[in-house]
Design a protein around this nucleic acid. Structure first.
Lengths: 179, 179
DNA sequence: CGAGCGCTTGACCGGTCGGTCAAGAACGCG
DNA sequence: CGCGTTCTTGACCGACCGGTCAAGCGCTCG
């Protein structure tokens, strides 16, 4: 499944044939259809498992951190680190978002991620560290910043994750105006 | 070309055949290859012209506005308005970003958009309305926020553009912490 | 009128794709 | 060893795709 993700990311979903996948694995075509009912199901499975993996990483990173703002900072950092290590999944996510068959799966995954973020934002609002605005809007905006900076600075320019993560955190906390 | 964009957005690039496109136009296949050398060139052309259209809209919106922060606000608003009216192009952009053949074109387009934003951010820094940080990072972050909020609130939840735009502007200016 | 050219048609081609299936290998078990 | 189950193979199928091209339409201009 990991090998298939690699191929999907390199060449795109449609241009990668089932024949390509099984060949790169050195197995016959039958074995593919023994474990997956279709090529479509394979991609859905990749989407699901990578989302779980990212979420696990976020939870590990913020475990036991009492300060909610610090949890957000660590979550952003962990997410960017994960994308850096799993660049291929980023491309796959982008494709999936553009395909009507996979967009719903992706949307549900993102709803979970947003819900996670919302919890910490609410905590921070209660503690008075974050202004009292709609937490979901804030969470969506944070996700947007993280994805954009990840793509530009980590993938396209290969800058260190730390630098990009610090920039993302700084913007998310204080926006254009600074503190 | 507009009709083709519609189909690409609805069904995706690969699943939309040249036969589908010419059929929906009620013309023969030959006429397609008279005007475009390939299906790939058609998409590249769509990418190019829609980028120009969006940029024109931004420039119209901010024309004659002396205050750089206000220009940024108007630019964000105009962009979200444009995406709202050209939803199909948003989906196409997403697909293009996931395909190695089109990603370079898209990247150049985005570089232009970022450069536009950077100019106004620099002006605002000079005037002291925006903190003195790397303007390009700020511009990238703004783009991320705009794209994410557009997708979630305008496309998925059909909220009014004004509300989404106000939320984007508020976040971009002051981040999580508020003013 | 008719020669030439820009434009249009749609049958056709070579090739590829997702998915099937009959055949059999590998293995556990009595 | 014989038998059933699980897993594996790769040739094969029908469908479809991007792209070509010989043929023809209709407009302009001499």
């Amino acid at each position: 499944m990991d090998q298939a993700a690699e191929l999907f990311a390199e060449r795109g979903y449609h241009p990668t044939s089932v024949a390509d996948i099984v060949e790169s694995l050195g197995v016959g075509k039958g074995v593919f259809y023994w474990y997956f009912s279709s090529k479509e199901e394979l991609l859905a499975e990749i989407l699901k498992s990578s989302h779980q993996d990212l979420r696990r990483r976020q939870q590990q990173a913020i475990a036991d951190e009492p300060n909610p703002v610090e949890r957000i900072r660590l979550g952003i950092r962990a997410s960017m680190q994960w994308f850096c290590e799993h660049r291929k999944h980023f491309t796959i996510f982008q494709f999936a978002a553009s395909d009507e068959r996979f967009a719903p799966v992706l949307r549900r995954n993102q709803e979970v991620a947003i819900a996670d973020a919302v919890r910490h934002i609410k905590d921070a609002i209660v503690e008075g560290n974050i202004a009292d605005q709609d937490p979901e809007v804030l969470a969506q905006a944070v996700v947007g910043v993280v994805e954009q900076l990840t793509q530009t600075y980590i993938f396209e320019r290969s800058e260190p994750v730390d630098r990009a993560a610090d920039a993302a955190v700084a913007f998310c906390l204080h926006g254009l105006c600074g503190e």
